[in-house]
Computed example of a mutant assay.
Amino acid sequence: MSSSFQANLDEDYIPQNILLTGGAGFIGSHVAILLAKKYPHYNIVVYDKLDYCSCLDNLDEISRLKNFKFVKGDISSPDLVSYVMAEEHIDTIMHFAAQTHVDNSFGNSFNFTQSNIMGTHVLLEAAKCHRGMRRFIHVSTDEVYGEGETFETEAMNEEHVLEPTNPYAATKAGAEFLVKSYHRSFKLPCVITRGNNVYGPHQFPEKLIPKFTNQLLRGRPVTLHGDGSNTRNFLYVEDVARAFEVILHKAKPGMILNIGGANEVSNLEVAKKLITILGKEDQMDELISFVPDRKFNDLRYTINSGKLHQLGWKEEMSWEEGLKTTVEWFTKYSGRFGNIEDALVAHPRIGFAPGSSVSNEH
Rank of each mutant, 00 (worst) to 15 (best):
P253Y: 04
L208D: 06
L162P: 00
T302R: 09
P348Y: 01
I33M: 01
H89S: 13
A97T: 05
Y52F: 08
K72Q: 15
H309M: 10
H362A: 11
N166V: 08
S181T: 11
E264F: 01
F70N: 07
R242Y: 02
D239T: 02
V122P: 14
V71A: 02
V46Y: 01
S181I: 01
I44P: 12
E152I: 10
I209W: 05
E149W: 02
T223L: 10
T92R: 08
S357A: 13
E176R: 08
V246C: 12
D293W: 00
G279K: 04
F5M: 11
I14P: 01
G261W: 03
N67I: 02
L217C: 12
N233Q: 11
G25H: 06
A262P: 09
V46K: 03
D282S: 15
A175C: 04
M1H: 05
E149K: 15
G279C: 08
N263H: 14
A7Q: 03
R134E: 15
L308V: 03
E143T: 14
E264D: 07
T302Y: 07
H249R: 15
R134D: 14
S356Q: 04
I277P: 14
P292M: 08
N233P: 06
L287K: 04
S115D: 12
Q6F: 15
C55F: 05
N233A: 10
P253G: 09
C129Q: 15
T223R: 09
H101N: 14
E361H: 08
A7W: 07
G228N: 07
I93Q: 01
H41F: 00
G22K: 06
N17D: 05
W319H: 07
L188R: 12
F5Y: 07
L178T: 01
T302M: 00
N58S: 09
F186L: 01
G219F: 06
S105T: 12
S229G: 06
S77Y: 02
W313M: 05
N360V: 11
I247R: 03
K211E: 04
L216W: 05
F186G: 02
N196P: 03
G132E: 09
F5N: 12
I14W: 11
G174Y: 06
D142M: 07
F96D: 01
H225F: 10
N339T: 02
N297G: 02
